[in-house]
Simulated scan of single mutants.
Amino acid sequence: MTIFPKRRLFLGMVIFAVITSIALFQTANAQVVIDMSGEAVNIPQPLHKIFGSAPPVNALIYTLDPRLLAGWNLPLPPSQRQYLDPASRQLPVLGGWFGQGYNADIGTILQAHPDLIVFWYPYMGPQASVVSKLRALGLPVFNIKLHNLTDYMQAYRLLGEVFNKQKRADKLIHYLSEKNDALQKLRTRIPDQNRVTVYFAGSPDGLRSGCDESMPTATIQWADGENVFHCTVNHFQGYQQVSMGQLLRWNPEVIVTDNPIFLAKVYTNPAWAPLQAVQHHRIYYIPQQPFSWFNRLYSFMQILGAQWLAHKLYPQQFAFNDKDIQHFYQQFLGVKISDTQLREIMRP
């Protein structure tokens, strides 16, 4: 299965660029822009502070210009702050609207004086009513979609125009396109019958995983791995329980996990001993700093995670090294990481 076909990706970018060029026009002190939900939004200019409704949105805003961020959705632990631009480390925590019981107080948001709120679209649960309240208070809301690479590239192009950061957006889009091309070329060199089988262990006991069509495990397919857990997604996040019997039947060649508790115990757990991934020591921890390389929701960090995993699965066919990681952190996050910091990122 081709997740991000090159031709479709290119055509989508061209069409969206044309639409964007038509949609943007200036009024006296504002810019009217058609957002990714098709709504015309009157955006004040210049923009000084912008707030994102959910962590992936704020992370995207950060990559365009961390000085524009009004605040974070969740507290930043010290381990995370060191990999972010100093301008963003002491920003207030404002909450957000992204499910799982997280609901920001509108009064708190107003106190941060954002010029624009960027919302993840389509809305979930009560988010539509929140947007209506924000607009009634005079706060412009701009919708973006972040469900796949094409969405991300379109969001970068559009927000680059809105934020007056076109050159920065173009630079990030070029990186995403170039690395996606490299991953697509890998796919053409690996016959389906030779694809490495992979299992994602997403809980302390390792028996909670993501379906092959879910967002948490999309990176496996992007890296040309074969997710052994084929199922129908029955939850937004795509996680479901599996049994040890199922896992033994699948017998994956590689296991990836974002759970350090599972990683610490798996090699000494006799129930897991028959698996070839355990026997061949091919269990890999997914780096989490400052944001997950796989992520439970789609993120630009997944382009890095896909390259890392592709090299783990096919070390002879896909080149990737520490310099590539350091380059990514400087390119997207604006920080230079030392060799010592890199080792810290790579371990649980």
Results as ranks from 00 to 15, higher is better:
Gln80Pro: 01
Arg81Ser: 12
Arg81Thr: 12
Tyr83Met: 07
Asp85Leu: 11
Asp85Gly: 10
Pro86Gln: 03
Pro86Tyr: 01
Pro86Leu: 03
Pro86Thr: 03
Ala87Leu: 07
Arg89Thr: 14
Pro92Arg: 15
Gly96Tyr: 03
Gly96Ile: 06
Trp97Glu: 12
Phe98Met: 05
Phe98Leu: 08
Gly99Trp: 00
Gly101Ser: 06
Gly101Met: 02
Gly101His: 03
Tyr102Ser: 12
Asn103Ala: 12
Asn103Ile: 07
Ala104Leu: 14
Ala104Asp: 09
Ile109Gly: 05
Ile109Asp: 13
Leu110Lys: 09
Gln111Val: 06
Ala112Gly: 01
Ala112Thr: 01
His113Pro: 00
Asp115Trp: 04
Asp115His: 04
Asp115Pro: 02
Leu116Thr: 00
Leu116Asp: 02
Ile117Asn: 13
Val118Asn: 09
Phe119Asp: 06
Phe119Val: 02
Trp120Lys: 15
Trp120Phe: 07
Pro122Thr: 08
Pro122His: 03
Tyr123Asn: 08
Pro126Met: 00
Gln127His: 06
Gln127Ala: 10
Val130Cys: 10
Val131Ser: 15
Val131Cys: 07
Ser132Cys: 06
Arg135Lys: 15
Ala136Lys: 13
Ala136Phe: 08
Leu137Ile: 07
Leu139Ala: 09
Leu139Asp: 05
Leu139Lys: 02
Val141Ala: 14
Val141Gln: 12
Phe142Arg: 10
Phe142Leu: 11
Phe142Glu: 05
Lys145Gln: 14
Lys145Phe: 00
Leu146Val: 09
Leu149Tyr: 04
Thr150Glu: 15
Thr150His: 08
Asp151Tyr: 12
Tyr152Gly: 05
Met153Tyr: 05
Tyr156Leu: 14
Leu158Pro: 00
Leu158Gly: 01
Leu159Asn: 03
Gly160Pro: 01
Val162Glu: 12
Asn164Arg: 14
Asn164Tyr: 01
Lys165Gln: 13
Lys165Leu: 08
Gln166Pro: 00
Arg168Thr: 13
Ala169Gly: 01
Leu172Ser: 10
His174Lys: 13
Tyr175Val: 03
Leu176Met: 11
Leu176Pro: 00
Lys179Trp: 08
Gln184His: 07
Leu186Pro: 09
Arg187Glu: 14
Thr188Arg: 06
Arg189Pro: 03
Asp192Leu: 14
Gln193Arg: 14
Gln193Ile: 07
Gln193Lys: 13
Arg195Tyr: 01
Val196Leu: 09
Val196Asn: 04
Val196Cys: 04
Thr197Glu: 08
Thr197Gly: 08
Phe200Thr: 02
Phe200Ala: 02
Phe200Glu: 00
Ala201Lys: 14
Ala201His: 08
Ala201Arg: 12
Gly202Pro: 10
Gly202Ser: 02
Ser203Tyr: 08
Pro204Ala: 05
Pro204Leu: 03
Asp205Gly: 10
Asp205Asn: 15
Gly206Thr: 15
Gly210His: 04
Gly210Lys: 07
Cys211Glu: 06
Cys211Gly: 09
Cys211Val: 05
Asp212Tyr: 02
Asp212Ala: 14
Asp212Ser: 11
Met215Val: 06
Pro216Gln: 00
Ala218Leu: 10
Ala218His: 09
Ala218Lys: 15
Thr219His: 15
